[in-house]
């Protein structure tokens, strides 16, 4: 029902939506162009190997190993954003498809898919994630696949719930009585009517996934040093937080501003689509 244009105008209609979207765009743009913008090499160490406060040479100061904090913060979101964005797409695709399928087919298909989902929901996913990474390494592809798989589980439930609302409508019955095939009904009749819900949910899940990714890095399982990453930066600098706050502060601001931006955008989107999350239960 809504083309990209109407979705955009919907988000831009509210002040928080404009603010959120510009924050997200800023981060994405920065991630794209930062390698050409940064003032220093991310791994070059200054001759003074110690914490130093903001100065004219180093706007955000130096970290424990004497590396420029601003440079590292600017680059620190690249891998996180790329991995989580791709993982979100993966989660949306497989979760959405399975959910719609389960809701439309019902019966045994529904039962098999949903019980499978229940099994995975019973496993504490962070621990499972650590297990997978410990086994297969922290290659970005592995991260994308695991994050995408685990976050897709929520999509299955949501897509199924949304589909159950649609599947009882006469237009689905009309399509069936016309002799339409299953895939035609899924893509023409059902998908366009559950798309909005899925879209809002993907934005929310993207922000959760960013947090999870940073948490993994924080625990030392995400990005391999010396590659800069927000979670990793926070982890390594937090010991000296009382002495030097800036190496922790800047990546924290970066991470939280991106997550807040995504959340504000998702909220504005939900409101403009009439999916007010305060009144609607998202599974």
């Amino acid at each position: 029902m809504n083309s990209l244009h109407t979705l955009l105008t919907g988000i831009l209609a509210s002040r928080s939506g404009r603010f959120g979207l510009s924050m997200v765009l800023f981060h994405v743009l920065l991630a794209l162009v930062s390698p050409w913008l940064v003032p220093y090499q991310f791994d070059s160490q200054s001759e003074i190997i110690n914490h130093i406060g903001p100065s004219l040479q180093h706007w955000a100061g130096l970290d424990t190993l004497g590396r420029d904090v601003l440079t590292r913060t600017m680059l620190g979101g690249r891998q996180a954003i790329l991995v989580t964005l791709l993982a979100t797409c993966l989660a949306l695709t497989w979760g959405g498809f399975c959910g719609i399928m389960a809701g439309y087919k019902g019966g045994r298909t529904d039962e098999v898919i949903m019980r499978g989902i229940d099994i995975f929901l019973a496993i504490p996913f962070m621990i499972f994630l650590l297990l997978v990474i410990a086994t297969f390494g922290n290659d970005p592809v592995v991260m994308i696949l695991t994050l995408g798989f685990f976050y897709g589980i929520g999509f299955v439930r949501l897509a199924r719930a949304a589909t159950l609302d649609v599947v009882v409508k006469d237009y689905v019955l009309a399509a069936k009585s016309r002799g339409e095939g299953t895939f035609s009904i899924l893509f023409r009749e059902i998908l366009p009517n559950v798309r909005d819900v899925l879209l809002v949910e993907s934005a929310m899940r993207w922000s959760w996934m960013l947090l999870a990714f940073s948490a993994l890095s924080f625990l030392g399982f995400g990005v391999t040093p010396p590659t800069p990453d927000w979670g990793l930066m926070i982890a390594s600098a937090r010991i000296y937080m009382a002495l030097a706050a800036w190496p922790v502060l800047l990546p924290m601001i970066a991470l939280s501003s991106l997550i807040i931006g995504i959340n504000l955008t998702a909220d504005a989107l939900a409101k403009s689509l009439g999916l007010d999350r305060s009144t609607r239960v998202l599974l």
């Binding site: 237009y171 019955l173 023409r188 009517n193």
Partner: peptide
Amino acid sequence: DASLNPSQ
């Protein structure tokens, strides 16, 4: 209302 798909 129910027999026409609102998104088409």
